[in-house]
Design a protein around this nucleic acid. Structure first.
Lengths: 345, 345
DNA sequence: TTGTAGGCGTTATCAA
DNA sequence: TTGATAACGCCTACAA
């Protein structure tokens, strides 16, 4: 139903045009060192022959790849996790921004060191640089990788001892915003839903704890629920949690998807959001504004973050050192935490 | 903060080990034509030197790319469109499946012919094959591309006159399922929300019309609303539409995101779903089961579809012709269309 | 078991 | 303005 292309090379075109390969190369690259007539003739021939340049060879000669590897270090099998709109948005931004700079995007779901060949530190210098979208549980591996190999930029939890360039949201601040918002609304017992094994979530948890402490509220371990990202699993995990009501009157969910799962369970149990329980999410994914109730959430500047990562990486490729950057987060107040505030009439 | 890798080549390793380049090559590729001692010594040296093989050169020599280009032909600027979980799920599946076959994934958001170089039919044979995730408004361009160049597989509306391998859902059937479900529940005036410029949506619209016809219900053009995918825009577009109530008592939305947007507007206008209006979506995205009300929708077998596309493409690369395939759709009944049915007690 | 030589398709340098 | 020629880094006969 479809055939391989005919693999015409510059040599073939050269032969057809009765010129040398170099002339063909010049004509195709728009060099001024070719007579206009010659160029036009060559282009015509190339077009008719369905010539497609071999980028591998070209890049080899030019000593470049013009490719950036974008890695989503996500456990295999947990497909749903990627469905989190966060990843898509990020991927779309990265693809666009890298494209503007002339780079292609090589997608990976596993870090390069998973694919070792004997003797190769890692499989293939197939990209000029690498962007990790999330560091997951691989921080030290990434650090090691960055030290030895390609230019690296990562999205995730920024910390003082990073020795590669990390860009990420102010998760601690975001956690504070979310928690404090509910306390100010008069909520007293705020639960935390998220996976504190992940550095970013741990930072959000940190912000949560800070605010509790500043309000002299002791941390209730029973209200800290280890909740995965995947909405199905989050739904399962939060089902028994819902029964703890009324031990809590507020929920800080580490992502909007988790917030949705929790709200679904609460509703099913006849617990009203926000009347009985306030909920704040994290991410500000597109649909969070359009569900019922619209979710109050901590906005992450994903678009901006993607742009910054690309800029930094380009900088690094150009030989400049780049500083990490922490992006401000912002509380988007909707209706899931307290009608008193959200629906002034 | 990160340096380029030192670009050690096989030649360097060879020199360090006092052997020829070919021996290094053999050692690294696990050939049996190397003495074990030699190999171990070479591997040791390579590892210490942080050697990373240059895949470009390797692939050039092997006359392969081991790369598949995955194209999401989505208009630039409409970032949100990609956020549709459909795309992410598909991308994740494709990445996994292609990975199993040893292929890397090159992401693109624009078709190759957008990046013409003078004289090149398209920029670069940078992949062994191409997967189009959605054909958008580019059908004839894709057809042309497929005829002349790489091995192509596409996701989208399957039609009899395709001359390349298209995989897609039974959209007509899905449209029928959705529409008929509401009619059977006693709804009489079903609205259609979607972008009929896109072939897949047109097929769903086709199914919708077929059912109306079989029920002797005339098509009411005012109830056919040209609605974009992006949830924000869908929300805007459906706002005035909501005011047409009660001219309709059912809505067939071409995607779950559109359904969500419509439901949000209905609720805001005080119109109850499903009591006043039934809503059926399309896609069965993960969150559709966890919003309120849970959305009745037409399930697309995305995972399966992705696998099939990869299998077909691999087949084509192996020289076998491949047939197009239409994937069954299934109605997932939840609560957005009629409590009578969805909540038996 | 190892080395030599030629080639993969392109670009760049140097002559002509 | 054009054409040899030598890279680019790796692979693979063929020879030793």
């Amino acid at each position: 139903m479809a055939r391989r292309s005919s693999e015409v090379t510059m040599g073939d075109i050269a032969r057809m045009a009765n010129v040398s390969e170099s002339t063909v190369s010049r004509a195709l690259s728009g060099s001024t060192l070719v007579a206009e007539k010659t160029r036009d003739r060559i282009l015509e021939i190339a077009r008719n022959a369905d010539f497609a340049i071999n980028e591998q060879a070209r890049n080899l000669a030019l000593r470049q790849t013009r490719t950036i590897e974008v890695i989503f270090p996500i456990e295999r099998g947990t497909l749903q996790q990627v469905s989190d709109p966060f990843f898509v948005d990020m991927l779309a931004v990265l693809t666009d921004e890298l494209g503007k700079h002339g780079y292609d995007v090589l997608m990976s779901r596993s870090p390069p060191w998973d694919e070792e060949r004997p003797g190769c530190a890692f499989l293939g210098a197939r990209a000029d640089g690498v962007i990790f979208v999330g560091q997951g549980r691989h921080r030290s591996a990434i650090r090691d990788f960055a030290r030895r190999h390609a230019s690296v930029v990562a999205w995730g939890a920024v910390s003082a001892d990073d020795d590669y360039c990390v860009i990420g949201s102010d998760n601690v601040g975001g956690g504070r915003l979310a928690t404090e918002h509910m306390l100010k609304l008069g909520r007293k017992r705020i639960a935390f839903l998220g996976d504190t094994d992940l550095p970013e979530m741990r930072q959000r948890f940190e912000g949560y704890k800070q605010v509790l402490a500043s309000y002299d509220i002791p941390l209730d371990e029973d209200l800290v629920i280890h909740t995965p990202f995947d909405i199905e699993k989050a739904r399962e995990v939060t089902k028994p949690f819902v029964e703890l009501f009324p031990r809590y009157d507020g929920i800080f969910a580490c992502s909007d998807m988790i917030a949705m799962a929790a709200i679904a369970n609460l509703r099913q149990a006849g617990i009203a959001v926000p009347d009985d329980v306030s909920v704040v999410g994290f991410d500000d994914i597109p649909s969070s504004a359009h569900v019922s109730p619209p979710i109050t959430t901590v906005h992450q500047r994903i678009r901006h973050g993607g742009k910054v990562m690309v800029e930094k990486l380009i900088g690094i490729l150009g030989g400049e050192a780049q500083e990490p950057e922490i992006l401000k987060t912002e509380l988007i107040i909707r209706q899931s935490c307290g009608a008193r505030v959200a629906t002034p009439s």
